[in-house]
Design a protein around this nucleic acid. Structure first.
Lengths: 227, 227
DNA sequence: CGCGGCTTTGATGTTCATCAAGTAAAGTGG
DNA sequence: CCACTTTACTTGATGAACATCAAAGCCGCG
């Protein structure tokens, strides 16, 4: 009985298991699988059948869609922004791909089990609705934000996104390449690099390979807001 | 007892009331309010408190967000793409505005009633999750589609959206202005007009004020796909 | 070590926004 | 109903923002 349910102590339990009792949790967790991925590994492939309800336990992932030979990045998600959620009840197949951009651990529940729990536990259902609303909202609002800015504003926005939302620090290692930033904000790799170099010359940031340090945050915020 | 519940015969009932029994439906519908709006009327204002669960019964609406003095159109929704859904469980206040772009009728349920139903009726909860997933998915996918196209492709996309998705006809009256198209696809009014004029000169469409007729659909589809 | 992918910078051309100016259409008050 | 105002639509000219092309250095990896 020792590990009858590790979820009980899981820091993510309160995410959406607040209203789930021990018996229910047990029945979920017996079928739970935890999987580890290394940076760069594919977690979910667009078009694959949806058999599991997945959430991110630790790490960082990118959610993207293929169009032709290009990737369009939809969002960068950390734990709490659980992924796989968006299509999971509406489709039989994934509409997006998910790839680890840092070493990540995901938690997989059988999708049917989750559906059963939605049916039998009203408070859980409401929690889930709320969480999924929030995730969708955030993606849409982020997308609108980026859309209305120009190149410089978009780059500033992304840098602040990493500094404030992901790493909570003015110095951090970019988990994605310049090319991926370009795929995220819908511009070319060259212009992402050029703009970041400009920011460096203007003493807004320091760049050392993947390491970024924001040294004039007020200005960066101004560029993000106006640009 | 005559009108004890008009919803019973409502064509939208099957949307998400399939799994709701007569008693439950009655308790919802006694608190139901139907409201009519004329083209141009504001239905929901960004920032207002969310007190109702709204869905569109007939008509056409635009969902948009204000940024500064500009409107950013998120999506054009017809019945079945019910609106108000996205933020409704995750927030206390609306994050978007909704305006009728054709005469519209909406159906308003008390939000607490809907939440109670989610708690007590598992099948309804699952239906609702599925519907909301689908709505969010569509908005995100549309947004990605538009984002990866250039001006000509975007205009072609929008024209096809109206022809195929909204009106199911190659000839239709544009329900929105050129300016609103610009706000939807993130370009300027002048360029929207210019591009539409080009399409006219190239004999892809006919324009007569608000009336649009697509006369070379294969080409328009090609422009949308490649542009 | 050499290959491929990522990064960087510069030069060039395309796409698009901005500015300007005029016409048409639609609402408003007398 | 008409003058008046406003808003929508349209076209052209110009410049800014951005993509594309080209070339070279860098880095990790088999």
């Amino acid at each position: 009985m020792a590990n009858y349910c590790e979820c009980e102590g899981c820091e993510l339990r309160s995410l959406f298991f607040n209203n789930v009792n021990k018996t229910e949790l047990l029945s979920l967790c017996t079928l739970k699988v935890e999987r580890s991925f290394e940076r760069g590994d594919l977690i979910v492939e667009e078009g694959a059948p949806i058999e599991e309800f997945i959430y991110l336990k630790s790490g960082l992932v990118k959610l993207y869609k293929l169009s032709g030979d290009e990737e369009q990045i939809i969002t960068i998600a950390k734990p709490l922004d659980f992924v796989s959620l968006l299509s999971v009840f509406a489709n039989n197949h994934y509409k997006y791909s998910v790839r680890a951009i840092e070493d990540s651990v995901i938690c997989c529940l059988n999708i049917q089990n989750v559906k059963d729990l939605v049916k039998s536990n009203g408070n859980f259902a409401l929690d889930l609705l709320e969480k999924m609303n929030r995730v969708a909202d955030n993606i849409i609002l982020e997308s609108l934000e980026i859309r209305r800015k120009h190149l410089r504003g978009r780059i500033a926005h992304v840098l602040l996104y990493f500094a404030e939302y992901i790493y909570n620090s003015n110095e951090f290692d970019l988990p994605i390449s310049r090319k991926e930033i370009a795929e995220y904000i819908g511009m070319t790799t060259e212009n992402v690099i050029r703009t970041m170099s400009e920011f460096r010359k203007d003493k807004v940031i320091k760049i050392n390979g993947k390491t970024i340090e924001i040294i004039n945050k007020p200005l960066l915020e101004k560029i993000s807001a106006l640009g």
